[in-house]
Design a protein around this nucleic acid. Structure first.
Lengths: 166, 166
DNA sequence: AAGCTAATTGCAATCGGATTGCAGCTACAT
DNA sequence: ATGTAGCTGCAATCCGATTGCAATTAGCTT
């Protein structure tokens, strides 16, 4: 790693060493803040900004990549040789990775068709995990406070007015 | 639509009518700002906030959903009966939609395996579109997607890939 | 070992989109 | 026409992302 940086005119510092280690040893898709927390548990003096910049660096040299799940916060994932997808629970935020060369191939084909040179795949299924569904039932709470809930897909065919025809 | 709102104790206003129309007639995945621009071209008095809130409303009733592409800005897409994927060019930001029941089915299966009840699919291929690749060549730019160039400029302005936005 | 310089760091400030508080306005049930 | 729950616009606020800057440091040079 040190050498890797050297060839780019970059320096290895104790901070970077700590952050690298934290990043590559941690679970995938962490936010800057999460990683920073882990980092300060190893060296309390390292600043958030430094973690952020190092993460950026890691992405720039191709060892990591930004991920955008559905909560508006940027996450960082180390780059794996094989693209993979995520199952994300929108309730508890838990994630699970999965691999499917079949899906990747289909996507590749589709990109080719349009002349897009793929750099990254984002494959995510967002939903409610088993655990959360069970909890919901357990609490006997069938609530779903009015307007918050999604209407069941069936009647989405609402005429948007006497205004413009879609 | 008016009736639809009514049943939820919500009101139809001229602003909403305009925003609804703009949203459903526009191309997919627009940002709040983009939609707002379109809206003020129809009625200059409508505020950004109102567009934002209406978009939120649309999502809450299940007619739209947030999308997070890779540039840190939230986009809104109208919900289509069938899930679809996007091809996104990270250079020019252009997007193209595509449908693949095969991919959806595979994802569904995989989610089932883990007990995740799917609510939404995110299927995106990010890369460089044909047009941008041609432009890059045309400009005589030596194409080197691997990580190399390090401008010794003061601050890091490397834009290897994946990291930078549009 | 000491010197030199560009790279790096921490802090505070800034940026910018997302979100909210509030007072005035309006749709619409009565 | 009237009352009231909902809207709306504006300004303020929130909050993660990003940057300016002066002090510090890694790593090369002598």
């Amino acid at each position: 790693m040190r050498n890797f940086l050297k060839t780019k005119g970059l320096k290895m510092t104790s901070q970077r060493e700590t952050i690298f280690r934290a990043f590559f040893e941690s679970e995938p898709h962490m936010t800057v803040e999460e990683l920073h927390e882990r980092v300060i548990s190893m060296d309390p003096a390292i600043a958030y900004t430094t973690v952020w910049r190092t993460l950026k660096l890691i992405c720039e040299v191709g060892l990591g990549e930004k991920k955008y799940f559905g909560d508006g916060v940027v996450r960082y994932d180390r780059v794996t040789a094989t693209p993979h997808g995520h199952l994300v629970c929108q309730k508890c935020g838990s994630t699970e990775e999965f691999f499917s060369s079949e899906i990747t191939r289909l996507l590749q084909d589709r990109a080719d068709e349009s002349g897009l040179l793929p750099e990254e795949y984002r494959i995510e299924v967002v939903g409610i995990c088993l655990k959360c569904r069970q909890q919901r039932e357990a609490s006997g709470d069938v609530t779903d406070t009015s307007a918050k809930g999604k209407s069941s897909a069936g009647d989405n065919v609402i005429d948007i007015s006497g205004a413009g025809g879609m």
